[in-house]
Amino acid sequence: MSAPNNSYDPVEVTPLHPDEVARMRDEALRAVAEAASLEQLKEVRLAHAGDRSPLALANREIGALPPAARADAGKRVGGARREISEAIKARQAELEAERDARVLVEEAVDVTLPWDRSQRGARHPLTTIAERMTDIFVGMGFEVAEGPEIEAEWFNFDALNFLPDHPARTMQDTFFVEAPSGGPSNMVLRTHTSPVQVRALLDREPPVYVVAPGKTFRTDELDATHTPVFHQLEGLVVDEGITMAHLRGAIDAFVSGMFGAGLKTRFRPSYFPFTEPSAEVDMQCFVCRGASVGNPDRPCRTCGSEGWIEVAGCGIVNPRVLTAAGVDTERYSGWAFGLGVERTLMFAHGVSDMHDMVEGDVRFTSAFGMEI
């Protein structure tokens, strides 16, 4: 076996030669000093202080040296790497300070500029009043229910006792959704929120107490009192022993909560396919409280001096609707109502033109405040 090579001179290993170590160190320090940005400094760190840098590779050569030669080589390489590391830290501090100073200048905000040139936004008054209407019924113990805006004809018409030849099914009133294949379609943009009644009964076991706010669609022209896209608030109660008296009580509670206490209501006979008997609900004008009727000296723009305002349609749920939803009509009965959100907004705040609600003019919405 041969003896260890104790005469091995580490100076003869090129990467460990003092001049070569000094050259690699000086090259790294020069690159650090020339780095003009944090991104460039990162590249310099990888090139001259990373695991594949020249000094890191030279450091690996030390392990092959005789024990007597390792100490000097380690001090030489370690000292150079330490100088580079300290230089990088110092340069990084300088570049970060320059960056922070630049940001303060470039992103400075002149607080003396006018702040109110752009008005603050807020939710649309239709949204806030619909939530207010909903909250009144939630306070009575109702649950909020939802349904799709693109609805099957069965939910929108058949289950609600609309006969096949009912005028509401025609293109004069309903938006039909074209089938992807171009063939006949049984999907429509829902014309009312009443389909949620059926869905609620299919999803829940009686007793059912739900209120369903939502968007609806009909082929109306946009004018002062009509819009093809409008909002309704549907209410449904199905339980044992439900009568018209319970419906009257709920309507009275809504009118008091929405327009003020002490207002009278009245029911007028009407017709809806999904309720029987059916009624239109009028409330006493909350502005004149009937004092303008027959009194030309006190005209009322809100009710047209009639003393009453129509607010809803309602009635006892038709047994055919309950049967379609699988409800035992011998045991359960119910009532339903429908409120117009736009109509309620018009009455509550004196809005006279539907155009104001849909055109997005901030001057209209700002009048209602920044309620969120």
Score class of each variant (00 low, 15 high):
E280R: 03
V44Q: 01
E20T: 15
T127L: 13
A87Y: 01
P273R: 04
T243S: 15
D9E: 09
N156E: 08
A152K: 13
V109I: 15
D361A: 11
L46T: 03
D356Q: 14
G78M: 02
A279S: 01
G307R: 08
S292N: 04
L38T: 08
F286I: 11
L247D: 05
Q284E: 15
R169Y: 11
A336L: 02
F286N: 07
P114S: 05
M258D: 02
F137Y: 15
R132T: 14
F155C: 07
V196N: 01
A312R: 05
H349N: 07
E39T: 10
A47T: 02
H349T: 15
K89T: 14
L46C: 00
M24N: 12
D297E: 15
G338E: 00
V341Q: 04
G304A: 08
C285Y: 04
R45H: 04
V32L: 07
V196M: 01
S333I: 10
T191Y: 06
D135C: 07
P195M: 01
D203L: 13
T191S: 10
F230Y: 05
R60E: 11
V311L: 14
V238G: 00
P4F: 10
G78L: 04
E149D: 15
R123N: 02
A348G: 07
V321P: 05
P164G: 10
A69C: 01
H226N: 08
L16V: 05
A36D: 10
W115F: 13
H246D: 03
D297M: 09
V208C: 06
L201N: 03
E107F: 14
P195G: 01
V11E: 13
P10D: 06
V210P: 03
S118T: 13
V237P: 00
E276N: 09
Y209N: 09
R268N: 06
S292E: 05
D26R: 13
C314M: 08
P296M: 06
L41N: 00
A80F: 07
A73T: 09
L65C: 03
L345F: 08
V111H: 08
D51V: 09
S256E: 11
T193D: 05
A200F: 06
A73H: 02
E83Q: 14
W115R: 15
E98S: 07
E306Q: 15
D9I: 10
S118Y: 09
W308I: 12
P299Q: 09
